[in-house]
Amino acid sequence: MTSNHSTTNIVIAGLGGQGIITASDILAETAFRAGFDVKKSELHGMSQRGGSVTSDVRFGERVLSPMVPAGETDVLLVLEPTQIEMNRPLLRADGVLLTTDVIPPGALKNKKSLNVAMLGALSSVLEIDEAHWLEAIHAHLAAKLHRLNDEAFALGRRSAQTD
């Protein structure tokens, strides 16, 4: 799952309020704990008022620019169906698109953990130890949310593997 520079490029897209930035924080932390060089970038600002948000995470042996060049995204993770087409050009030709379709309807207990469920789906296509994912989730979310999000992560991971 790497492009020519031996850097893995992930873009997470959705709308303000969906936890896109939290998701990319967790992903970056996971890759960092797994021993990679990591960079993560997005534009803050107006995003909190419901506008489109994308966040780029890159990891590998040595990452240079923090932004994923258009057309070089290995995995595009989209949390909101209306945001798929607009972001599709970011993918490289044989890149992977993961949408909320991987989560079986009604299976998610709490809509707020969709971001973590989608990380579960992402985890099934990246070769990073599951323990690093869970550590990163726990480091970024309050203790009382750990169980809910562990379950969401497991759901996404399971669903994508059997997809």
Partner: peptide, 13 residues
């Protein structure tokens, strides 16, 4: 240059 994708603009909550 290619135009950047036009996302959903922010609005008052």
């Amino acid at each position: 240059e290619p135009a950047p994708p036009q996302g959903k603009p922010p609005e008052l909550c």
